[in-house]
Amino acid sequence: MQNINEIRHHISAVAETRKITSAMQIVASSRMKKVLGHIAYNQLYSERLKRAIREILLSSPAPQSLPYLMARGGERRTYIVIAGDKGMAGSYNANLLHYAYAETKGHPNYHLITCGLKASAFFHRNGIQPDIEIMGVSQDPSLANARTLASDVIDIYDKMLTDEVYIIYTMFSGPSRHLPVMNRLLPLLPKDYDEIPARIPEADIIYVPSPEEAFHMLIPQFLTAEIFSALAQAYSSEHFARMNAMQSATRNADELMKKLTMQYNMARQAAITREITEISGAVEALRNGDEAYATGN
């Protein structure tokens, strides 16, 4: 039987931990609630956007000579990996980072852009130095951040430093729920959009002012919108994972407390019983002594 004081100490430690996990659960679920309203719309927006991109790519006068629309044939890839800044979110970070690691391993000649502390720490640990480490974006999936990232990506691509750009993040909604996914950002190839239902325009699309100029302005728009939606999906996935992890941690703490309280009561009961036995034993012994004295033996 464990020492009573030890058990008491254990119980108070578990209670403290439980306080923290339940507080984190509340924080994560309130963040989730804030995001949930946006995320359904975000999904719709990204579907609409992809459909528009496909319709534009399908229509004939799209300029094939634009560098953003052509595969360069090279093998130099750039990966943007979006993970969280903090742990305590179950397997959220681990799943994504292992997926990204396996993916990058197959293509040795690559550049790496990481979003979030966990992502850069993971690659550092594996002996890989990310080319760009972006901090603070995972916690603030704002349009301004997406815009900056998009313009960096275009810059890298324009300078011929890379042939293809991919983004790796965790999907929150849709068929690949809570799973890491990888999308090609650049170049824009029609085959990436094959599965999206499109309304094929019956006549050639008119581009204002000209196809070349229109596409030059369209590409940053596409990228910004796609990156924003990836950031938003990753953000909600992270908080959803954290909410679940903290919920089960709180539940485990409750169970552990119940078990420990039971042990504590049993130990206390045992101690009392032992004490009574000792006292009554002593009384018995004393009485025997008294009787022996009285009878004069």
């Binding site: 019956e202 006549a203 699309i205 581009y207 204002v208 002012p209 100029e213 229109a214 302005m217 369209l218």
Partner: peptide, 17 residues
């Protein structure tokens, strides 16, 4: 980019930044 553009019902397919 080259001035304002007005769309009415029945416009031909068009894409413009």
């Amino acid at each position: 980019p080259d001035g304002s553009l007005t769309i009415l019902a029945g416009h031909a397919p068009l894409v413009a930044p």
